[in-house]
Design a protein around this nucleic acid. Structure first.
Lengths: 175, 175
DNA sequence: TTACTCATGTAACAAGTTACATGATTTA
DNA sequence: TAAATCATGTAACTTGTTACATGAGTAA
């Protein structure tokens, strides 16, 4: 019940999202969802997920109900407060509009400084690597819930924008 | 001279990039560059930059030369090893092709689950917020070096792709 | 000489990672 | 019952943050 005013971290928001749209999950199921998702950058490590869920439960955002079985599993659901806080997190325009940390963008400026035979080779290797990534994402698009599908579609859009940018840079060089 | 084989972190790569393309900078100048850049997500905090530079110097990737002035400032440049390792980092296709962690993408799936008057309001608020961000980025585009300009252009492309995605979702709703 | 800024650094904290420990349940 | 897997949790580490300490130059 403490730290009520602190805004949620990205991982905490993602955990609440997962419980909300999947409904009454166990901690293990939340963890697995992160591990499987190719559009989330967390590994779904136990050392991150379990403490975060414990904190959210202690803060009164998650209701944790023990099951009858002997196992330590508990069924998790959102409290009213949890729903409210999740909603705030989802709709926070400052966070949602931030550009995030993009390994491609971080390196992009330096590619122009590369010596010319290397530069083309590097950009072409990257180009085909990104096409592979897109294929991988497309393959995942089948048989997925709506939430994850939106994420993957956006990941594909990002990769396509990167391809167009690379095409421009490769065309510039062949002038 | 230790940990030679460990691959560079994103921050370490960004620091080497900064020193390389700016040439012989002080730690303070590197720090300021991070603080000013809108396309990098680090705050350029002293507690991150100084230890990272110390580590890179100890590993033999950065050469640190004391200045004559009484101040503690040192001029930093890359060693041959530093150039090589920076080049590897820049051209690493696995890292460069990864989608990164995107606050917009993380939330996008949940917007579809919002109740309808709220959903349109939220998406519209986000739309105009992103347009503001683009204006801010465009204003920065003037009088910038090539490296930072590429980054900002990519940030603008990302925001424009987000706008198109939002337009689609808003149009869908008004069917 | 007092106050302000420049420049470097450190301490305490936050939030993630891997790797391991532990115990329950299922399957061979 | 032995082995594999399910499920939760914890310890040690990494890498970032903010806030503070420290000391050198500069302007009033």
């Amino acid at each position: 019940m403490k730290n009520r005013q602190d805004s949620l971290t990205e991982l905490e928001g993602a955990i609440l999202s997962e419980i909300h749209h999947r409904g009454r999950s166990t901690a293990f199921q939340v963890r697995k969802a992160f591990q499987v998702s190719p559009s989330l950058e967390w590994s779904g490590s136990a050392g991150a997920v379990y403490p975060a869920i414990a904190k959210l439960t202690a803060s009164g955002l998650i209701l944790s109900e023990k099951t009858d079985s002997g196992r330590k599993t508990s069924l998790l659901s959102l409290t009213a407060e949890g729903e409210t806080r999740l909603n705030d997190w989802i709709c926070d325009p400052a966070r949602a509009a931030s550009v995030g940390l993009d390994p491609f963008r971080l390196r992009a400026g330096m590619w122009g400084a590369l010596a010319e035979p290397m530069r083309r080779t590097a950009l072409k290797a990257l180009h085909s690597r990104i096409r592979e990534e897109i294929d991988g994402l497309r393959a995942r698009l089948v048989d997925l819930d709506a939430v994850e599908r939106e994420r993957i579609e956006l990941a594909i859009l990002l990769q396509q924008a990167r391809l167009r940018w690379l095409d421009l840079r490769l065309a510039d060089a062949s002038r």
